[in-house]
Simulated scan of single mutants.
Amino acid sequence: LEPILPIRARTAASRAPLFCIHPAIGLAWCYSGLLAHLAPNRPVYGLQAPHVAGAEGFDSIGEAAESYVAHIKSIQPQGPYHLLGWSLGGLIAHEVAIQLQQAGDEVALLSMMDSYQLSDEWLEHAIPTVAEIIGEFGSDALGDDVEFDQSMSLRDAAELLRSRPGPFAALTVEHLERLYAGYANGTVLAHGFRPRTFNGDLLFFTAGDDEINRTDPTRRAAAWQPFITGTIQNHDLRCKHSAMTTPESLAVIGPVLNEHLEAAAARAREARQ
Rank of each mutant, 00 (worst) to 15 (best):
D140M: 07
D114S: 03
W122E: 14
Y116M: 02
E121P: 01
M112R: 05
F137T: 01
Y183M: 11
S163V: 02
T187Q: 15
I133M: 13
G135V: 01
E124Y: 12
D145H: 10
G138Q: 01
Q117S: 11
L171G: 04
D140W: 06
A190I: 09
Q117A: 10
E147D: 13
A131E: 01
G192E: 15
H175I: 04
A190Q: 11
P195L: 10
M152H: 04
S163A: 12
G135D: 08
G192I: 09
G182R: 02
L161G: 00
L123F: 09
Q117N: 10
E147W: 12
N199R: 15
R155H: 13
P167V: 04
V173S: 04
E132W: 12
L176D: 05
D149P: 03
R178K: 13
S111P: 03
E177L: 07
S151K: 13
T197C: 14
L189T: 09
D144Y: 09
S119Q: 11
G135A: 12
S151L: 12
Y180S: 11
N185E: 14
A157I: 06
G192K: 13
H125N: 14
A126N: 10
D156T: 03
H175V: 03
D201W: 12
E124V: 14
L123P: 00
R178D: 13
